[in-house]
Design a protein around this nucleic acid. Structure first.
Lengths: 357, 357
DNA sequence: TTCCGCCGGGAGAACGTTCTCCTGATCGCC
DNA sequence: GGCGATCAGGAGAACGTTCTCCCGGCGGAA
């Protein structure tokens, strides 16, 4: 006889079906039936049980439910609210999960300088998710790119994985959601061409990320469709804004300066603005600039930035939708979804002046 | 005899201690002992069990643990990554929780236009947290202010509650963390006074929020310490930026225009910038502007904004720290913590020109 | 050689729920 | 009035873990 807890009012312990049963004068099993609405009990008993439950402010225990079904109704989300774009993505994930009665457990490698580096922090975070038996995970690119071996912890346990703005080899069995890079590249190439630009430089994102590589290649392909356009790409090393400035300064101070710059992100476009101001190059009169993402600050720059709007919120929604669908349905073939983008034309792009041609 | 699952390889089911026991040739109970490291078993058995666990990639099931102890090692966080400030707060919460092996379940009322309004969405979110048996909650001001009756769902169940930038009546038994408003007000009042400003207008935040009211009162008290300063406050109605613009336009186009404006937030300061540009009022030559928060854009405005830096990350850390401490220790008296702020002097404030006096 | 004590490890209850199976009562029909 | 059908509701196993209790074997001392 090992009675661990005889009184039900232990600290932190909540109302149980047993207590409802005691109050309503029925067994705990009956309470379970009534609350689940499985079998039509006698109307009178039903009402009595429901009333008791209401009175005790009963709330079901999903931990127990999760233990039995193996499903916790929680999704691991490894993506920080890094900037405007990622916050929007998180909003999308959140709203879609909520609609389906899921909940996000949001977690990422703590970046506070590693002054408490017990073990590899990323792995610890993964284990925290695993131990809570999340039903699936959504990953952001830096994590998936840098710690792909850790992603195995998920895939070896048959957990659905959805990558955002990134892809992994097929062996990982991971889905992915992102922007339609080809479409973005096409829109930018057409826009700049129609404005008369014939010399364009693409400031490319780091090629360790799938989006960086992809965005560059897409633009190379799409601008090759205009044989009269001279296009080159310069890759920004992953690191500080200093190095980006340096690179852009080189591009803009050369003898054959491009008439337009297509930056792989709005952040890089901002750097272009700064360097241009330094070099007294007027935007858009002497230099057209296009960004990518449509961050919150894009519309507020002077001049307002022409940029490719990524459907951040929708990407988040889609990612959540895919994980939820994947939960339970074992062994589907992974999908790679690309959502359409939109070119937001503002005032940082203009017709090339005849004199500059 | 109700064998629900005879084969252990059901979809989604993970490795259990029983399986480890079978592999290592011991009982499940022994596995539990070894893994918990409770009792010193024979070194040989220990090693055998640990090896089996490693081989099967065993991970403990926190759902079960939570069911038994009533503690889920998860904290409900009702605060969206609304802007830079709140993202920083979330970083702080996240990092501190992670250090203590907790996990955040981040959730907020979905704001997508209520087109799927099953029931009051806020309540549904609260119930999602309750059903997962979170050990405590952290709330952001709009939620706590607008749905304080729902907060009862937590307090009536003895869940520790920590409010950020807000307070509730003592009956709620809620802790709170925020910025030291008095200190901020004092720094601003002193700074503006020392620059010679004698006519200052405070653009106050909505008084339904505790911070809005508090910030205003603090500044009233602190500027009253300078009898030669004429200070008035104008409250922005909660709503769109349009109404704020209108109000600020009135303030700046009157006959006795103030020499300085102290805006209750950086966002409002930005509106002041816009209206000033409209009215051809030069900052800081003709008007000094001070903000509050030190958002990411504050340093990038032209001119860079003088503002009170709120320790967002630290506020998040503190909030998490308080909930974690409160878990388990029943019936402490709630604490109201105020973290020190810092005045970041940039170029939006300047000495009053003699001629304008 | 017998008894005591110690130690490793197993049996089984308990946590809160779901689900299957079973009991017992009520009712209608011949 | 007896018999089968119907239906409400209870007993109890199971989920994966922790923890208490107990059993069996071994070593040492009388």
């Amino acid at each position: 006889m090992a009675k661990r807890l005889s009184n039900a009012s232990a600290p932190g312990r909540q109302v149980s079906q047993k207590e409802i049963g005691e109050l309503a004068g029925v067994s705990q099993a009956t309470v379970s039936l009534v609350l689940a609405g499985r079998k039509v009990n006698s109307e009178e008993t039903r009402e009595r049980v429901l009333e008791a439950a209401r009175q005790l402010k009963y709330r079901p225990n999903l931990l127990v439910h999760g233990m039995q079904t193996g499903k916790s109704k929680a999704i691991g989300v490894m993506a920080p609210p890094f900037d405007y774009y990622w916050s929007r993505v998180l909003y999308g994930i959140h709203d879609t999960l909520a609609q389906n009665d899921y909940v996000p457990i949001t977690v990422w490698p703590s970046h506070s300088g590693g002054h408490y580096g017990y073990e590899t922090d990323e792995l610890a975070q993964i284990h925290r998710l695993l131990d809570r038996r999340v039903d699936g995970v959504i990953l952001w690119p830096p994590f998936a790119a840098l710690f792909s071996e850790h992603v195995n912890e998920f895939s070896s346990r048959d957990l659905p994985i959805v990558l955002i703005d990134h892809t992994l080899p097929p062996s990982f069995q991971a889905d992915s959601v992102g922007s339609d890079e080809r479409m973005g590249a096409r829109l930018v190439a057409q826009h700049l061409h129609s404005l008369g630009h014939r010399h364009v430089v693409h400031i490319a994102g780091p090629s360790v990320t799938a989006w960086g590589k992809n965005r560059r290649r897409s633009f190379e392909v799409e601008s090759a469709k205009f044989p009269d356009v001279h296009m080159t790409a310069q890759e920004v090393p992953p690191g500080t804004a200093e190095q980006a400035s340096e690179l852009i300064r080189n591009v803009l101070s050369g003898s054959d300066r491009p008439t337009a710059i297509y930056a792989a992100s709005d952040g890089l476009a901002k750097v272009v603005y700064r360097v241009s101001a330094e070099l007294k190059i007027r935007i858009p009169d002497e230099l057209s600039v296009v960004g990518f993402a449509d961050h919150d600050f894009a519309a507020e720059l002077t001049p307002p930035l022409t940029t490719v709007r990524q459907p951040a919120y929708e990407i988040g929604c889609k990612a959540a939708e895919i994980v939820i669908k994947a939960v339970g349905s074992s062994h589907r073939k992974p999908a790679n979804v690309e959502l359409p983008v939109e070119l937001i034309v503002r005032e940082s792009t203009a017709k090339v002046l005849a004199t500059r041609r």
